[in-house]
Amino acid sequence: MRQSGNLENIISELYGLYYQDVYRFLICFTGNQNDAEDLTQEVFMRVLKSYHNYHHQGSIKTWIISIAKYAAIDQLRKKKFSSIFKDTFFKGIPSNQKSPYETIELQEDIKLLYEAILKLKPNYRSVIILRAINEYTVKETAEILGCKESKVKVDFHRAINMLRKKLHIAPEEVFNNAN
């Protein structure tokens, strides 16, 4: 990121660089497009208000994603989160290599997986979203969540096991990198 003396320019640049990462995290965390859009805007307002507190100890990206995590948890507490992913959201793009039946079956499996993720406690949900869906490293995930790498590994393992039990399938079938 280029250095700029103007805070608005810095925030504008950060928004351009990290909007997609924040939005993707929040859409997975909340399961609601409108909530994710609103929370994404809130995250960057929080970044603007607290940028002076960022001391360049970790990457700016992980700092912003950790703000997103806290914004999502705050919303969860306020709304006592209970919604599930909409039927039409997160549908995979049909592939020419799959039959319509296989495509529908895959979409249904993905829907069930996301519904199961929403039922996980927030710490496990965050780890699954960051590690398995967004494919952050253990180190990046630990930075975002503000915990040790060992906790990320343990929580990820426990969350995967919970998903296996709830779904009676191996999450590796849906996640590309579940380890």
Score class of each variant (00 low, 15 high):
Met1Asn: 10
Met1Arg: 05
Arg2Ile: 11
Ser4Ile: 02
Ser4Met: 10
Ser4Lys: 10
Gly5Leu: 03
Gly5Glu: 00
Gly5Phe: 00
Gly5Lys: 01
Asn6Ala: 06
Asn6Thr: 05
Leu7Val: 07
Asn9Gly: 04
Asn9Ser: 08
Asn9Cys: 03
Ile11His: 00
Glu13Asn: 10
Leu14Phe: 03
Leu17Asp: 12
Asp21Pro: 10
Asp21Tyr: 12
Asp21Trp: 08
Val22Ile: 05
Tyr23Cys: 03
Tyr23Val: 01
Phe25Asn: 04
Leu26Thr: 05
Ile27Gln: 07
Phe29Tyr: 15
Asn34Cys: 09
Asp35Pro: 07
Ala36Phe: 02
Ala36Gln: 06
Asp38Trp: 04
Gln41Ser: 14
Gln41Ala: 13
Gln41Pro: 08
Glu42Asp: 14
Glu42Tyr: 11
Glu42Met: 12
Phe44Glu: 07
Phe44Tyr: 12
Phe44His: 08
Phe44Gly: 04
Met45Ser: 13
Met45Asn: 13
Met45Val: 13
Arg46Phe: 07
Arg46Leu: 12
Val47Met: 09
Leu48Gly: 05
Leu48Asn: 11
Lys49Glu: 14
Ser50Ile: 06
Tyr51Pro: 02
Tyr51Lys: 03
His52Ile: 07
Asn53Cys: 06
Asn53Asp: 12
His55Ala: 15
His55Gln: 11
His56Ile: 03
Gly58Met: 14
Lys61Ile: 11
Lys61His: 13
Lys61Asn: 13
Lys61Trp: 08
Trp63Phe: 09
Ile64Gly: 03
Ile67Phe: 02
Ile67His: 01
Ala68Phe: 06
Lys69Glu: 05
Ile73Leu: 13
Gln75Gly: 08
Leu76Lys: 11
Lys78Pro: 02
Lys79Ser: 15
Lys79Ile: 13
Lys80Thr: 14
Ser82Asn: 15
Ser82Lys: 15
Ser82Thr: 15
Phe85Arg: 04
Lys86Ile: 07
Lys86Leu: 13
Asp87Arg: 12
Asp87Trp: 08
Thr88Ser: 07
Phe90Ser: 09
Phe90Trp: 11
Phe90Thr: 07
Ile93Val: 14
Pro100Arg: 01
Pro100Gln: 05
Pro100Val: 04
Tyr101Ser: 08
Glu102Gly: 04
Glu105Pro: 00
Leu106Asp: 09
Gln107His: 13
Glu108Leu: 11
Glu108Met: 13
Glu108Pro: 04
Asp109Gln: 10
Ala116Ser: 13
Ala116Met: 04
Ile117Ala: 06
Lys119Cys: 04
Lys119Asn: 06
Lys119Leu: 08
Lys121Ser: 13
Asn123Ser: 14
Ser126Val: 09
Val127Gln: 01
Val127Ala: 09
Leu130Met: 12
Asn134Ile: 11
Glu135Asn: 11
Tyr136His: 10
Val138Phe: 09
Glu140Asp: 14
Glu140Tyr: 07
Glu143Asp: 15
Ile144Phe: 01
Gly146Cys: 05
Lys148Val: 04
Lys151Ala: 12
Val152Gln: 00
Val152Lys: 01
Lys153Gly: 00
Lys153Ala: 00
Val154His: 09
His157Gln: 09
His157Arg: 11
Ala159Trp: 02
Ala159Val: 02
Met162Tyr: 08
Arg164Val: 03
Arg164Tyr: 02
Arg164Gln: 08
Lys166Asn: 03
His168Trp: 01
Ala170Arg: 15
Ala170Leu: 14
Glu172Lys: 09
Glu173Phe: 11
Val174Asn: 00
Val174His: 03
Phe175Arg: 04
Phe175Asp: 02
Asn177Tyr: 12
Asn177Leu: 12
Ala178Phe: 05
